[in-house]
Simulated assay, not measured.
Amino acid sequence: MRVLIAPDKFAGTLSAVEAAEAIAAGWRRRAPHDELELVPMADGGPGFVDVLHASLGGELLAVNVLGPYGDTVPGTVLIHQGTAYVESAQACGLHLTPAGDRHAEDASTYGVGELVRAACEEGATRVVVGLGGSGTNDGGAGLLAALGATSDPAEALTRGATGLGDLQDVDLEAARAMVEGVELVAASDVDNPLLGLRGATNVFGPQKGVADDRLQAVDALLERLADATDKKTALGKGAGAAGGLGFGLLLLGATRTSGLDIVADAVGLPERARRADLVITGEGAFDFSSRSGKVPYGVATIAAQALQPCIALAGQVLVGSREMRALGVESAYSMVDLVGEEASFADPAGSLAALAERTAKSWSR
């Protein structure tokens, strides 16, 4: 039996690569003769580069960049056949700020611009920027500055949303020259605009530390950036992704593409699904929000197109059978139901392997 294992990360416990390996280890204990193919997945957020490197190979370019609050953080650009893959969360991710000390108004995407610049200077003709998991809300101002954009006053683009309060003018000529001849792709499943009730600040700001009574004021700061650059672009789908980082990329001519589709195409997931007898996906919490561009729904959709069954292994399963099938998943299995919540967090890899072993009893031939 051919089994395709294509999970997302289990947030906070296992990377997608680790999750795939744990599922495979457990499955082999029950069904050692099955042929397993591991294809860890990502949607553009944390783990984007690791997942692509695990499947594609390629050259990893190490780059130290500025984190969201100006400290130096390590970043990695994956170069594969002329395409560079950049994971924005490495430079501006929410994980870089402790939960109790988040000040998104001051956080900058400058480091993401440095990663893009490094990719361009390395000679990449296509740069794919994975958007997701950001702890910033500066409309991509920092990214623009790192690529050469200038402003009046001079430091307005580099101090997070706070710096935009004094913004008078932005010149994008040097930034556009930096990416001239390079195909820019914003990889995100978020289609929110930059501003308004569905914009970056109002929808995603609170989880990044923007206080409720500051949402309107911070949204107004991003509007100043839009007024100084291109308000029409601010209305575009995906402009509000990653705290407006999508807007910064769109200003430079980027096209927006589903992050999951980027990964699925890069690793040849549709072809692999057609060769499989069973597709396994998974994530930390499998619930109905999984339909909003998340990995399990995308993998299940591809499995359905290949006319193959798809099951999900998760830390927790929070949907009933009807909702599960609406997501394209035949059955979903929970680590918490099998071993309990404490054991799931204490030994996530072992618990996931045990769940896979139990599941193989039902699904392996």
Rank of each mutant, 00 (worst) to 15 (best):
S334F: 03
R176L: 08
L94N: 08
P296W: 11
E155H: 14
T76I: 12
S364V: 14
G111A: 10
K232M: 10
L167P: 02
V39Q: 02
G70I: 03
A356N: 06
A19Y: 01
V51F: 00
A211L: 13
G26M: 03
C92P: 00
V65E: 08
K294H: 12
A119H: 03
A149T: 00
A353V: 10
L78F: 06
E342R: 13
G113K: 07
G100M: 11
H103R: 14
G209C: 01
R365C: 15
E341R: 14
F48D: 09
P46I: 04
A264G: 06
T162Q: 13
S55P: 03
A226G: 13
Y85G: 00
S351Q: 06
L327N: 02
G139C: 09
S258Y: 05
G160C: 06
A145T: 00
A234E: 07
Q316E: 15
T72D: 09
F204G: 04
H103W: 03
Y85E: 07
R159Q: 15
G236V: 00
G209Y: 01
R256P: 06
I280L: 10
D212V: 00
T83R: 05
G248P: 08
T136F: 07
L60W: 04
A228M: 01
L251W: 03
A186Y: 09
T158S: 12
P74W: 07
P270N: 09
E121Q: 14
P98D: 08
E114H: 02
R358V: 05
L327G: 08
F288R: 13
A241L: 09
G148V: 14
G45I: 06
M335N: 10
S351K: 13
S334V: 15
L96P: 01
A285N: 11
D265S: 12
E35H: 15
D287N: 11
G113T: 04
T136K: 05
E122H: 13
G160R: 04
D138T: 07
R176E: 06
P296K: 04
P348L: 13
A119L: 07
G160W: 01
M178R: 11
H95S: 13
L197Q: 15
M324Q: 12
A25D: 12
E121P: 05
G259E: 00
E341I: 12
G320V: 09
L184E: 09
R30W: 07
G238F: 03
V339A: 15
G253Q: 10
L143Y: 01
N137Y: 01
G160E: 00
S351A: 15
L195W: 05
V319C: 03
T359A: 14
E155A: 14
